[in-house]
Computed example of a mutant assay.
Amino acid sequence: MSNSSIYAEPAGPALPGSGFTLDLTRAALVITDPQIDFLSPKGATWSVFGDSITENGTVGHIGALLASAKEAGITVAVSPHYFYPTDQQWQFSDPIEQFMHSVGMFSRTGPLTLDGFTDSGADFLPEYREYILDGKTVIASPHKIVGPESNDLVLQLRKRGVSQVILAGMAANLCTEGHLRELLEQGFEAVVVRDATAGPRLPEGDGYLAAVINFRFLASAVWSTEQTVGHLRSA
Rank of each mutant, 00 (worst) to 15 (best):
G116W: 07
G116C: 07
G116P: 07
F117H: 11
F117I: 12
T118G: 08
D119P: 09
D119H: 10
G121W: 14
A122H: 10
A122W: 07
D123M: 13
D123N: 14
D123C: 11
F124S: 04
F124R: 00
L125A: 12
P126T: 01
P126R: 05
Y128A: 00
Y128H: 01
Y128Q: 00
Y128R: 03
R129D: 03
R129P: 01
R129I: 02
E130H: 14
E130L: 13
E130C: 14
E130Q: 15
Y131D: 03
Y131A: 04
Y131R: 00
I132N: 02
L133K: 06
L133G: 01
D134G: 08
G135C: 01
G135I: 00
K136T: 15
K136M: 12
K136F: 13
K136E: 15
K136V: 14
T137H: 00
V138L: 05
V138E: 06
I139Q: 05
I139E: 02
A140F: 02
A140C: 11
A140M: 08
A140Y: 03
S141Y: 12
S141H: 12
S141D: 14
P142K: 10
H143N: 00
H143T: 04
K144F: 04
K144R: 09
I145K: 11
I145Q: 12
I145N: 11
V146M: 13
V146I: 14
G147V: 11
G147P: 11
G147C: 14
P148S: 05
P148E: 02
P148Y: 01
E149N: 15
S150R: 04
S150Y: 05
S150A: 08
S150N: 03
N151M: 06
N151T: 06
N151P: 01
D152Q: 08
D152Y: 05
L153H: 05
L153Q: 02
L153K: 00
L153N: 00
L153P: 02
L153A: 01
L153C: 01
L153V: 02
